[in-house]
Design a protein around this nucleic acid. Structure first.
Length: 443
RNA sequence: GGAUGGGUGGCCGAGUGGUUUAAGGCAGCGGUCUUGAAAACCGCCGAGGGUGCAAGCCCUCCGUGAGUUCGAAUCUCACCCCAUCCGCCA
């Protein structure tokens, strides 16, 4: 695969219309414009449909020429066998070639133009997503647990970690730069125990299959889960043209790319614990203290590939799976339905789970569960064959954090801290901590 | 990194320039026969797109991309991937 002139190679093997279905837009231009308006985007259907009409006219002309060429080639072939004269057919076919080159090029250009235009547009939001452009417009759907009453000033996670001597930002900066953290001893183990605990819960109790996946993926995968074309700057790219995953959603979801799954195989539920890498390009200066916003962090990801009729139920189920982690850890959280402006590019509907951080005195996101409906499935060509054996349709894909391990560690530290700066280990993590009940400063 | 051999439909597999408009087989689906089943036999059996009210007709796809040719699964070039061996490495 060549870079440089790669503008569209990630579309190469995919069915003609990915991302948004141009046929749907043709049938309901006003509805599509209204959907984009909710994303604060201007009407898109006009230019798209003009382009579409041109593209179809070009395709028809190209195919007519191809058809004629095929007829001539067949005639020449038959004539040669009988030794008949083929001069006039060959002359016509030769003359056709120049014309065909022009038509091919025109058709390919219009195709690429339309794909580029469609690929840059975000998903259509669900009807019940609240309007709004900022965090304050998100709607709280649920509030679980009780904030603990502290008889001392609650400290932030980095104050606790550094006082324990188990969290080292200076050395991390020395070897890697800002937005990295070195954990020592019990905190390193706590991170491991958290990841292990979450994976076990999702695999043993929630029916997810654990997968171990590449953390480095190709460009087609990045397009499939909509990191491209719009969010290239948010991720790290390797010198050989691959990308470091910002979330395991990318490799896990792309596992079904180009597949036609039997309906009976749905839903597919997979989970993985991976490192995640983010450039945090747009967030300079935000959350610079501590390990809340890192270039590298671990996360347990949940991915479901569902029948379109089942994706709403699957979304609720997935959100519950993430919530179950926080409930087991006994950390207060609330479930937010994101407003239009806060909902990500690829999502139709997103639930964020926010945990209470007493040291910071704020609710902070620890999980985000999205139903992308057929948006990603169209981009990556993920389909299923209905039980009737005939109908082929796009699956719905969903992804959610179950949950972010680094932030879960922060939440444990702040919620389980004690007056002397030690931290109790939540019951459910004690087996993974070798029975340790309290994390203290080591001598 | 070097060498060699490979990439053909859900799977196996034939195919070295024109009746390939991708043989044949397996699996699957429907039917005949049967009390039922098996066997046998018959038929169906990829995706995307264009056009049309529809039936249908047409185009594209044999790893990817370019090229040669009136015509490419088949010839040429580059690249990707897989297997095996060597080197290196966890």
């Amino acid at each position: 695969m060549r870079r440089g002139k790669s503008s569209c190679f990630f579309f190469a093997r995919r069915p003609l219309f990915v991302m948004h279905d141009i046929k749907t837009i043709r049938a309901g231009a006003a509805a599509f414009d209204a959907a984009m308006a909710r994303r604060c985007l201007p009407d898109a259907s006009g230019p798209l449909l003009t382009l579409d009409a041109e593209r179809r006219a070009a395709a028809t002309a190209q195919q007519d020429a191809q058809s004629r060429r095929n007829v001539l080639a067949r005639e020449i072939g038959q004539a040669k066998r009988t030794g008949a004269d083929t001069v006039s057919q060959e002359a016509e076919a030769t003359a056709l070639r120049g014309e065909m080159e022009r038509l091919d090029r025109r058709s390919a250009e219009l195709d690429a133009e339309l794909r580029t235009a469609l690929g840059a547009l975000p998903n259509v939001l669900d009807a019940d997503v609240p309007d709004g452009t900022e965090e304050a417009d998100n709607r709280e759907l649920k509030n679980w647990g009780t904030k603990r009453a502290f008889e001392f000033p609650a400290r932030q996670h980095f104050e606790l970690g550094e006082a324990l001597g188990l969290m080292d930002f200076e050395r991390a900066a020395k070897i890697a730069g800002s937005r990295f953290t070195i954990l020592h001893g019990a905190l390193a183990r706590l991170e491991r125990a958290l990841g292990q605990f979450m994976l076990d819960m999702h695999t043993l109790r929630h029916g997810y299959t654990e997968v171990s996946v590449p953390a480095l993926v190709n460009e087609a995968a990045f397009f499939g889960t909509n990191q491209l074309p719009k969010f290239a700057a948010d991720s790290f790219r390797t010198t050989d043209g691959r990308w470091l995953i910002p979330t395991a959603e990318v490799p896990i979801t792309n596992m079904v790319a180009d597949d036609i799954l039997p309906e009976a195989a749905l839903p597919v539920r997979r989970t993985a614990l991976t490192e995640c890498f983010r450039s945090e390009a747009g967030s300079a200066g935000r959350d610079t203290r501590g390990m809340l916003r890192q270039h590298q962090f671990r996360k347990v990801e949940l991915v479901s590939v569902a029948h379109p009729d089942q994706s709403d139920a699957e979304h609720e189920r997935m959100t519950r799976c993430a919530e179950a982690v926080l409930e087991a850890l006994e950390i207060p959280y609330r479930r937010m339905l994101l407003c239009a402006g806060d909902t990500g590019f690829g999502a139709a509907r997103t639930h964020d789970l926010e945990v209470w951080l007493p040291g910071q005195g704020m609710w902070r996101e620890i999980s985000s569960c999205s139903n992308t409906r057929a948006f990603q499935a169209r981009r990556m060509g993920a389909r299923f064959r209905a039980a009737d054996g005939k109908t082929v349709a796009h699956v719905h894909t969903l992804n959610g954090s179950g949950v972010a391990v680094g932030r879960a560690l922060i939440a444990v530290l702040e919620n389980y801290q004690q007056a002397d700066g030690s931290v109790r280990v939540p019951e459910v993590l004690r087996p993974g901590m070798g029975g340790m009940e309290v994390i203290r400063r080591s001598a």
